[in-house]
């Protein structure tokens, strides 16, 4: 009996989360794909055809015939969408690089900090991650506004004569992304630097490398797994970011997350939004698999 019970227990440990994620995470993507091939309709749900088990097999086959790639053709023909994708990728790449350049010295310094204060520093980096994303983005509005705190500060100092226009430009988006995603970059780099054997850099210096050379030849290459994980953690969500371009960006800012949101909430065009989402997913599927692979490998090493 107990053996039987434990076998069931072992099975359930896998099956319950597996089924849950399949139903609520994986299956929806197929629905998105299906709807992206449908037509818009003024109905509820606002698309055609609607599959129904009552149709029988012949009915479903007939309806499959009604699916079309018209939405994708539309996306390809409208420069708005292509530009939005390209501009999202560009913004994500630039912000990822900037985030890396800011995060690396922080992570490096944290890893070199006295062991007694490291947990505190770590907590200080994680803490903003626990506070609302929306709030942290919102906080920047008051700072970046033309009459905002940054401009007041710079005007008082006499650095500038007239207010800088930052809010509602791409600059604000870069600041927003770098700020919001900084902890995601710091943490994996820190953890890869922190577990590094300090004697490796000493060995490099012993063999004639200056401290700077030792950093580039030994420390940095060995922290690459953390750098890659951090870049993925910033880049992938940044491509589809909505809140930051919506609150900090201007009307001319094109980002695909915002486009999708507008198609869905304002235009109520579900099939088009589904098509936008499908393509976004296709763009991101390679980096996501890359990330998963790196993550799984890192966990494997921990064993």
């Amino acid at each position: 009996m107990s053996k039987f019970g434990s076998a069931i227990f072992n099975r359930l440990v896998i099956i319950i989360p597996y089924v849950w994620l399949t139903v609520f995470f994986l299956a929806p993507f197929f629905i998105v794909l299906r709807i992206s091939l449908s037509e818009t309709a003024i109905a509820m749900p606002p698309y055609l055809p609607v599959f129904n088990l009552a149709d029988g097999i012949s009915g479903i086959v007939e309806k499959i015939g009604q699916l079309s790639t018209a939405n994708y053709e539309f996306l390809a023909s409208d420069a708005l969408y292509t530009n939005a994708y390209l501009s999202s990728l560009r913004i994500a790449v630039v912000s990822t690089i900037v985030t890396l350049m800011i995060a690396y010295p922080i992570a490096y310094s944290m890893a070199k900090a006295p062991t007694s204060i490291r947990p505190t520093l770590l907590m200080l980096v994680i803490l903003p991650f626990w506070t609302s994303f929306l709030i942290r983005v919102y906080a920047w509005i008051a700072i970046l506004k033309p009459e905002g705190l940054l401009n007041q500060f710079l005007l008082t100092l006499g650095v500038i004569d007239e207010p800088l226009i930052i809010l509602n430009t791409n600059w604000a988006i870069y600041i927003g992304i770098v700020y919001s995603y900084l902890p995601f970059m710091v943490l994996p780099i820190y953890s890869s630097l922190e577990k590094m054997d300090h004697s490796l850099t000493e060995a490099a210096q012993d063999l004639g490398c200056t401290p700077i050379c030792a950093f580039w030849r030994v420390t940095f290459p060995l922290s690459l797994p953390g750098v890659i994980a951090g870049c993925m953690l910033v880049f992938i969500p940044a491509v589809g970011e909505f809140v930051i371009p919506d609150l900090l960006g201007g009307s001319e800012t094109l980002m695909i997350g915002k486009t999708l949101w507008n198609e869905f909430n304002s235009n109520r065009d579900w099939p088009i939004s589904a098509a936008v989402a499908t393509i976004l997913l296709l763009i991101l599927v390679v980096p996501i698999m890359f990330f998963q692979h790196a993550q799984a490998k890192a966990d494997g090493e921990g064993k």
């Binding site: 609520f24 995470f25 969500p237 491509v239 589904a274 996501i288």
Partner: peptide
Amino acid sequence: FSGMIYAPLVMPEVITGLSMLLLFVA
């Protein structure tokens, strides 16, 4: 399975949100 664990960590929220909504409607 591990893909389904890691992907949501980085998946843009607009995609997760939209796909789940479409599931509920379906």
